[in-house]
């Protein structure tokens, strides 16, 4: 991979939800860097903080959630230092979002055309309807939708079509970063593939950086260059997909990859026994220690740090930090 300009840099991001029972550490010290045009995957099971992180990147953390610390640099600007109005201007024009449930993400009482036009007129000012329509219809064709969708309501579209509308909407202002939060989880596998292909095509044409959030490692592996594995609000491992699949360093990554079905190998699939720890009272040591088959005494005592073991391959695990010592 050639070295490209970093477009998004997350440094020690902490997002907590303050509840009556204490603080839920949904995102707890996450750092990563993304480069221009790169596609970057974030995988993890439900509740590991991946969607919360997407919200933080959009500056959309709402009460009871708060940003407890860290910085997010988008094209060199720390977005937490910006005021509301400036963040609002950055949203969509520089960083856009494809939501998890496209089913409910479109306003049911507005035509598709108007919902996309809203973005254009908000960020680029008033434009006559005729120009807007041409532009939006052209956009709809790029994601494989017919022109008539412009005048249709969300309930007249299938799930896959709605997801395409969301993709079209995400690229209308040609942003530098697109965050896709499980964009295909609500679709069946056939449509899933087609929609994912559409997403990758438009991303490549635009040269935008793509953050693909999901729980399906297999699906991500086909699409992204680099991947981060998240567990209990922290990053367990980051690396290039190829290296990570060949040589997973973190036991969690290893178990996740082993749980994927393959055509060659037919065996009884092993899940990972146990559940992630409560983010309300995270354990003192490694969050994975209670499920880890390689757990050591030390793991329950001290939190492992994210260390670069090989070039561009980071892991947070005591098994590997000892190697370095």
């Amino acid at each position: 991979m050639t070295e490209r300009k970093p477009i998004l840099r997350v440094k020690d991001l902490k997002v907590y939800y303050h509840t009556d029972r204490g603080s839920v550490r949904a995102v707890d010290g996450v750092s990563f860097t993304m480069h221009e045009g790169e596609s970057f995957g974030i995988v993890g099971e439900s509740g590991c903080g991946k969607s919360t992180m997407a919200m933080a990147l959009l500056g959309l953390v709402v009460s009871p959630g708060t940003i407890e610390g860290g910085q997010i640099f988008l094209d060199g600007t720390d977005i937490f230092t910006l005021d509301r109005e400036l963040i609002r201007k950055i949203r969509w024009s520089q960083i856009s979002f494809i939501p998890q449930g496209a089913m409910n993400s479109l306003n049911p009482v507005m035509r598709i055309g108007s919902q996309i036009a809203d973005v254009i007129t908000t960020h680029q000012g008033y434009q006559p309807e005729k120009i807007l329509r041409k532009r939006i219809q052209k956009l709809l064709s790029t994601v494989g939708l017919p022109h008539r969708v412009y005048r249709m309501y969300p309930h007249e579209l299938s799930g896959g079509m709605k997801q395409r509308v969301c993709i079209a909407m995400a690229i209308v202002l040609e942003p530098e970063v697109i965050i896709a939060d499980e964009p295909t989880s609500a679709l069946d596998v056939v449509v899933q593939r087609v929609v994912m292909q559409t997403l990758v095509d438009v991303q490549e044409r635009l040269g935008a950086a793509l953050i693909l959030i999901g729980h399906d490692m297999g699906l991500q592996a086909q699409v992204v260059n680099r991947q981060a594995v998240m567990y209990a609000g922290k990053i367990a491992e980051i690396g290039e997909v190829k290296t990570m699949y060949k040589n997973p360093l973190h036991p969690y990554t290893k178990l996740l990859i082993e749980s994927l079905p393959t055509l060659q190998l037919r065996h009884d699939f092993q899940g990972i026994p146990g559940l992630p720890p409560s983010l309300l009272n995270p354990p003192k040591g490694c969050a994975f220690s209670n499920r880890c088959p390689y757990v050591m005494e030390h793991c329950r005592e001290a939190m492992p740090k994210l260390v670069e073991i090989q070039p561009n391959h980071f892991v947070a695990c005591h098994l590997h930090s000892e190697v370095i010592k």
Binding site: L58, L60, K89, R91, Q100, S105, T122, H123
Partner: peptide
């Protein structure tokens, strides 16, 4: 969700 997306749209 559509309110959240509207906010994300800026």
């Amino acid at each position: 969700d559509y309110i959240l997306l509207a906010q994300a749209k800026g």
